[in-house]
Design a protein around this nucleic acid. Structure first.
Lengths: 316, 316
DNA sequence: GCTGAGCCTGCTCACCTGAGCGAGTTTCGC
DNA sequence: GCGAAACTCGCTCAGGTGAGCAGGCTCAGC
């Protein structure tokens, strides 16, 4: 009986969704009353046999967003669909687009916005539309005088976001990681530099991404760390970094000595922030995304479908 | 404008399909009238952004079936969904199941059913339910005294189909291909054998599969042909075989001499049949499926989604 | 054999939704 | 600058659909 009912519900669903027939017509075809047909279709839905997918680069998964809001500490979430994604780069562009959309719709409009830098942030700055804000002050919150092959990317990101928001920007004139603790402390003590950090501390919103801890880390590409050093960090439990600081699965600083030499606002400032938007997506960043969300380092997460599911699988 | 409308239609579709909101509620959220929302959703559908899929081993694609009926000579078609298929074997089972379902629902119930043999036919015989017919006469239509490692599969298929249909069966006591033409002619002239062929010629319905022309051909496994001979056939345009006979893309016999030695009803008999059900699916059988459908060798095709699409791409 | 609980069936009713229509608006060519 | 064509918008209306309800059926336990 149940088996036969299941098959019937599939036949009914086919006629309903594929052939656009009314439940009444289906009733005539299958020799059932239209109420029975309605119940069969409802049953097929309840059993998960009917999959409705929105295939569009800007499609979101509202169901997953709701689950994230309900089952994690996040106050808000944006989950982009992976349906029709062709490659990693395509996915990153979708996420950046979603972040740009979120920023544009953010209310109240942030007066001061603290940002990190990197590939993701740069993508967001490109996707942002002109006039997304009126008079925002963009401040870098971690060291970013880039040593890498695309000089100025960090600065270009801040400049672009500020310009498109008809505002001004303040760069943090420092490397991401200094070689000696003393240098870092001296730099932090410098009045002009301290003023930037102070400004970053008062930001009304933060926008940052995260890096995974492997040979593909931006810190390696930028020359601040060697692959061997990354390996060491991983051995000690690092799953990735945010605003330059490497953290473990539980959100703890992995290497306090290294962290002392890392220039930028402390993680505690993110944890206390009312609006901290993390933009983290892609297969390789599942672990760091879990660490960030699980330890309350952000209030808003912008991510992809797969990462969201991985997150929900951990925290039920 | 258009761009913005497209995005709006996606947002509306998300709320409608993912969040189960009414168009009126969506109107309130997006500050639109409920008619505008309805039009946006219709637009999203028309643009193909909404994909509704029925995920079930026995789900069919009625839309493709209709297209096949309209754009080919087929009088009927069954197309099984590939959504959620795990491997080739799974797909073949779905197709066999669909064929068994089709046979069970076939009206009028065939009095005499001509069948070929092979992996697919065997699968169908397994999936068939007891009592699918009452008093059917099953007749083999091509040579099938098997030489291979699973002796009796061909016979077992016929026996099983007949038994489950509460009927009798008649085997064709001959190899698929004979070594000499004279032997074949002598065998065909034998009264008891001729009677079987005669019975096959009067069948009220035929059920057969097809084999692809490559090293995986059942003829190689059965020992009737060598891989080298298959290669020769392919060189001469063979795309596969049905009821033991190798045909080209246009449905022509590829090697008349070989065909003379092949035992079974001639293809013309299938072409003239009122009900000839071909069961052909899987990536490797796209070419032979096209040949069979294109040259009118069957009136009914039971296949999978991908093969159906390949067929439709050829014949517009 | 009887009885009651639980399930299924067919129905009413209210709500949701798509087709079609006229008014207002934009756009394009002259 | 003007007029016509095309489009968009909000609406009416009828048809489609899901929630909730009463009656009947099945089945287990006494």
């Amino acid at each position: 009986m149940t088996d036969n009912d299941e098959l019937l519900s599939i036949r009914a669903a086919e006629l309903y969704y594929e052939d656009d027939k009314t439940q009444d017509e289906i009733g005539t075809i299958l020799r059932l009353t239209r109420w029975k047909v309605g119940r069969l279709i409802a049953q097929a839905k309840a059993n998960g046999f009917i999959r409705i997918e929105i295939v569009h680069p800007r499609a979101r998964r509202l169901g997953l967003e709701r689950q994230l809001r309900e089952n994690t500490r996040l106050s808000d979430a944006v989950v982009v669909s992976t349906a029709g994604v062709v490659d990693e780069h395509d996915l990153q562009r979708r996420i950046a687009q979603a972040a740009a959309d979120y920023l544009t719709a953010l209310r109240p409009v942030p007066r001061t916005l603290g940002i990190s830098w990197g590939r993701t942030l740069y993508d967001i700055s490109v996707q942002l539309g002109h006039g997304w804000a009126t008079g925002v002050h963009v401040v870098q919150i971690n060291g970013g005088v880039s040593l890498n092959s695309q000089p100025g990317t960090a600065a270009a990101t801040a400049v672009s976001i500020a310009q498109k928001g008809a505002g001004q920007f303040t760069l943090l004139p420092s490397p991401a990681i200094l070689e000696r603790v003393q240098t870092k402390q001296a730099l932090a003590a410098d009045r002009s530099v301290a003023a930037v950090l102070q400004l970053g501390a008062t930001a009304s919103a933060y926008l940052f991404s995260a890096g995974q801890a492997d040979e593909g880390s931006a810190h390696v590409a930028s020359g601040y760390l060697t692959p061997a050093q990354i390996d060491d960090l991983v051995q000690n439990g690092a799953v990735g970094d945010i605003v330059g600081r490497f953290i473990s699965r539980t959100g703890q600083i992995v290497d306090p000595a290294l962290d002392e030499r890392t220039f930028g606002i402390p993680l505690e400032q993110l944890r206390r922030a009312k609006t901290a938007i993390a933009v983290i997506g892609g297969q390789r960043k599942h672990a760091i995304a879990q660490a960030v969300v699980g330890s309350g380092l952000c209030t808003v997460l912008i991510t992809d479908e797969d990462t969201a599911r991985a997150l929900l699988a951990r925290e039920p």
